[in-house]
Amino acid sequence: MTGAAAGGLTHAAPQLLRTAQDGLAVAWRNLIGLRRVPRLLVFSTIQPLVFVLMFRYVFGGVVAPALHGVSYVDFLIPGIFVQTVVFGAMNTAIGLATDMQTGLMERFRSLPMARSAVLVGRTTADLVRNVFVVAMMTGVGFALGFRIHAGVPSFLGGVLLVLAFGFAMSWIFAVVGMAVGDPETAQAAAFPVLAPLVFASAAFVPVNTMPGWLQAFAVHQPVSRTADAVRVLVLGGPAASDVWQALAWDAGIVAVFAPLGVWLYRRAV
């Protein structure tokens, strides 16, 4: 017999290492795509830029009195970080749905690669994209008057928390992308879910002016938990409880949606 099995062209690595290598190979492929089609990156940075300017200057004056001395831009930027990665997660759905329509997916499914690799590769590439976008938003924030109040390590901890949340959201949208299978539908399906999560939250305004029924939702949903945790890490104060709650959401989301996504990939045609 010739070839792969006996010919020594291929290598044998432990299963887990192989799974990681396969995911990274696909992530590498997705990042090259992002570099070659830079408009994707440009548009995913323009949108949060518009948001930060709009909220800072349109709503800033109204919200400021409710903040008891905290400047609105310091309150807003952690919320913008979270909003950015949540909306950015739509790209995970769009990217996967686009892939599903190409012959490349058929080939992937016939290769001896890990069944999780296509999804891990996509969510990992989107994590790297979020690093760039959050770094850029930090720069914009500083230009608009945002300042770190609790030290740089604590701020970086906040950024990591934002990235972890973005990664978790990517897994939700990986499932959306696999389930709907075409990019237009993925985008249309994503927005009605995202808008209430982002706007009925503590991302842009304190929740205490919302009606009671809405407050109940707004306080306990993951966007608020993460925005509040990041805010504490930036502004100072006891952070542990908020951070643990945010991390618990991230872990819970990945634990549910990653297996679901891989299951959908296995049976997608």
Partner: peptide
């Protein structure tokens, strides 16, 4: 070239 290298990595051809 990148396409072929991607398939090489995903079929576990020796680095």
């Amino acid at each position: 070239r990148e396409n072929l290298r991607l398939i090489g990595r995903l079929t576990h051809v020796r680095h």
